[in-house]
Design a protein around this nucleic acid. Structure first.
Lengths: 341, 341
DNA sequence: CTGAAAGCGCTTACAG
DNA sequence: CTGAAAGCGCTTACAG
């Protein structure tokens, strides 16, 4: 004996008003009389009725949810406080506007499939550039899109910092401190595209180069590494660096979480930071002040990035034009980078 | 000139098959001929058609999403790695089953409103006990529910560790190390209920008590504090503790993130951990090994908690009975707790 | 202020 | 293997 679900029809019948009136009572009370609202709402309350979200969404042709495309698997994204902070920003703004946040990860390795099935009205992507297949999918679903840490392009919104300048400032600081023997730890290119992209990775490299040129750095003394953007990625690359015949005096990373992974390994191996090796990060995550020594890094407004990306999304949803913004960053000097001679 | 959306009707008409056939081609290809599938799919591909998720969900009467009720505001939840790890577990399992994860926070302070509007098929709550209003809402929406770190009750699933035993073991270790002058930092009661609950907070307290009894501890030497479950909460309570006339030799917390907040303040104030004050945590979050000294704590399987909670949810959704499980924990001895005499 | 009715686009039990 | 048709429960433009 299954109790049937209470629907708008029941409330209409029992309260003596029409379906229209019942709907208005919940969504637009000013359009009907006070008395009608009162009667309807109390009837609804009595029967435990609330407009079915599924039917409501279908009728409104709206999911009431913003999608966030994870740059990595669930696992790595969740282990990266920088990403979490962005998500928090998106979630907070969306929540304030009664929208959900839907986390999207590839389904069966396929972003396309995931995106097709996703119950979202708009999309925020972080840290990855996408190929034409995904771009056309987004277009065919007419999904308003904002790219965080991506490549600003004309038809979608974007949120960035000046990655080139930030990287340049950080590298200048490193060189200023006398370091010449560097290990640079880059991040993998997460583009879903074959063409050479021109994203934040390339911008930061350019920033480094300009600093090298300015300080007349002998490029022979610089070694490059690449690792996953995670604590584990940092751990792995640290062991690689330690195996080198000549240790660097400074390790320059593109992410705090990677830097922290590296620091853990160095410390465990009896290497003093920063006396033997300096380490610098990027992002200024909360953890960067409770590792020891505290991390010298570039502060970028992660929460703000997410928050403002969501804001732009809502503007587009309201019919406004997609904005492209640049947020401020700043160099944060702490103890993990030491002056040498 | 707005291009009309391609629907199942268009594909049916153009491919020369019925709507039924089109639907089967996508969802149940074995029910129609290979040729039909091929024709329909290629027609769909040509027109960029994909079954509308909104209509699909409405028809199926299914949101394809699991709700996760945040124990705190967005902000604090995201700053707590223990919570994030649970969410990761839930998200991973759900994702593997093509379900979304919907994060739910109170709307206008109201959990009830948030829950009514939520587009979810089932609910996972963490760390809070709910009152009859919420319970009846869950029941009226027929939401399968699993409580993590809650109070196991008959009609919903539950995932816990043996909090009493875990707390007892940790406290015994503290007492074993010779500490008698303790500061115990408890967490706020997050129950949405007026009645005295009997959740993990009470269980842990009981665990402490039994250790005290066993070691014949003079309860006069123990002071109690309460603070929010966050880094900031730890910072705040640390300042309170430092203002006391007599400092404790050990601070016992109920959460690593709180412990880490406390450690930061102690260190900044020139207090050596563990030589002057020992600190112990709870949870064994990833960060607990990269603070210095590394944190002595109770390890509990946060990711597993989320993963298995989701698993139980899917069982209930399939009509099985809600299981109540207990996961293992273990004491992790590191350097933040020191033997004194 | 009020209500009848169209429309949102699928899925699937059922009959053939 | 195939298709006609019912059903999912709302919102809102429109007429009164």
């Amino acid at each position: 004996m299954k109790k049937k679900k209470v629907t708008i029809n029941d409330i209409a019948r029992i309260s003596g008003y029409s379906k229209t009136a019942v709907s208005f009572a919940f969504n637009n009370p000013s359009k009907i009389s006070k008395e009608a609202v009162k009667t309807i709402l109390s009837t609804a309350e009595k029967l435990g009725y609330f407009p079915d979200p599924l039917a409501r969404r279908f009728s409104l042709q709206r999911h009431e949810s913003i999608g966030f495309l994870l740059p990595q698997t669930y696992h790595y994204s969740f282990k990266n406080p920088y990403i979490m902070s962005i998500i928090e920003g998106v979630g907070t703004f969306s929540h304030n506007h009664f929208y959900n946040l839907t986390l999207i990860a590839p389904i069966n390795e396929s972003v396309t499939t995931a995106l097709q099935r996703a119950a979202i009205d708009a999309l925020i992507v972080q840290g990855l550039n996408f190929d034409t297949e995904i771009a056309s999918l987004i277009k065919s679903r007419k999904l308003p899109t904002v790219a965080i840490d991506g490549i600003p392009s004309l038809d979608i919104g974007s949120v960035n910092i000046d990655d080139k300048k930030a990287a340049n400032e950080l590298m200048q600081e490193v060189l200023q401190c006398g370091h010449r023997n560097l290990a640079i730890v880059e991040l993998p290119d997460l583009s879903y595209t074959k063409e050479k992209s021109h994203g934040i990775l390339e911008l930061r490299s350019e920033g480094y180069q300009e600093a090298f040129d300015r300080y007349n750095v002998d490029k022979e003394s610089i070694s490059y590494y690449k690792t996953e953007c995670s604590f584990t990625g940092g751990v792995e690359v640290a062991y690689k660096i330690l195996k080198m015949p000549k240790l660097p005096t400074c390790i320059v990373t593109m992410s705090d979480i990677v830097a922290i992974g590296i620091m853990t390994v160095l410390t465990k191996n009896g290497i003093n930071i920063p006396n033997q090796i300096s380490v610098v990060g990027f992002d200024n995550i909360g953890e960067s002040i409770y590792v020891s020594p505290r991390l010298t890094t570039v502060s970028q407004p992660s929460y703000e990035k997410g928050f403002q990306a969501a804001q732009i999304i809502f503007e587009i949803l309201k019919g406004e034009k997609a904005r492209q913004i640049k947020l401020p960053h700043s160099l944060v000097k702490r103890e993990s980078l030491k002056k040498i001679d």
